[in-house]
């Protein structure tokens, strides 16, 4: 079938059946400045912890030495730094550094308030076994699959679930698990599925930076809309309470005046 790009990145029908998308207004604003901000939630968590440890007032007494390590290790560590720093650096090139950081913090805070993102992250964490050595990392995929199915059955937005799974399981050693979970819950290989949404834009599949940026913006927009709706609901309730209170007060005044 033909997918509309304005319909949640053209999410296929079988995914729409498990969510409340049709009740939400379509919008194209989530595509704003997608190439300027590619920091994933995972990067943000690493960044936040790195900042905390860098600013920790405690002096560190270290012992220096030299050591021979596997050739790939230093490159792997540099790539991690590059992933964090360049996502900020790209933002700093577009905005000022302060604005870029403020926006990243704001977006991450908004994303962290999204219940589907939280539930999906939790589904992974609840079935994760990790030691200090990543080589001993293990995931109970069937447990995650059951939890993801429950999230989707309860109306969780499939696009948000898919994007969050991609971010939570974005390491080379987690690819098999990600594939297994997505194939179980969405019926298709994750890369094939994401490419099918927009073959020209998402040619790298589920880890494509454009897909991640689009999903990130989509989550921010949906969450901001949910927050705005809850404020409207709260205001309506408050107004109803005030009106009700006014009625009571009027009644009271009448009563008092009646005496």
């Amino acid at each position: 079938m033909a997918y509309s790009n304005e319909d949640r990145l053209g999410i296929p029908d079988f995914m729409q059946k498990t969510n409340t998308y049709h009740q939400r207004p379509a919008s194209s604003q989530y595509r704003r400045q997608t190439n300027a901000r590619n920091m994933t939630e995972d990067d943000y968590e690493v960044y936040k912890e790195m900042r905390r440890r860098s600013l920790d007032r405690k002096n560190i007494h270290a012992k220096q030495s030299r050591k021979k390590v596997d050739n790939s290790l230093k490159g792997q560590l540099k790539r991690h730094w590059k992933g964090i720093v360049f996502s900020i650096g790209l933002g700093a090139a577009v905005f000022s550094a302060d604005q870029a950081l403020d926006e990243l913090f704001h977006e991450a805070d908004i994303i962290n308030q999204n219940s589907v993102v939280s539930a999906t992250r939790q589904a992974v964490r609840d079935h994760e076994l990790r030691t200090d050595n990543v080589r001993n990392w293990q995931l109970n995929t069937s447990g995650v699959e059951q939890d993801v199915d429950a999230i989707l059955d309860n109306g969780g937005d499939p696009l948000i679930v898919l994007g969050t799974l991609g971010n939570s399981l974005n390491k080379t050693y987690t690819q098999d698990e990600l594939t297994s979970i997505v194939e179980h819950s969405f019926g298709e290989n994750p890369d094939t599925l994401v490419r099918s949404l927009n073959p020209e834009r998402y040619d790298e599949g589920i880890q494509d930076p454009d897909f991640k940026a689009d999903v990130r913006n989509y989550i921010v927009q949906q969450t901001e809309a949910d927050i705005a709706r809850s404020h409207i609901d709260a205001n309506s309730q408050l107004e109803a309470m005030l009106n009700s209170g006014q009625g009571i007060q009027n009644t009271g005044e009448k009563g008092m005046g009646g005496k």
Binding site: V46, M50, L55, D56, I60, A62, Q76
Partner: peptide, 28 residues
Amino acid sequence: SNEKDPRDMMIRKEDVNNPDLLLPIEDD
């Protein structure tokens, strides 16, 4: 970067008088 966990990263400052002392970054 932690040799065993690439996610464990930090920036510290070297103390010119004591290279084994890693000082914190002052502020944001």
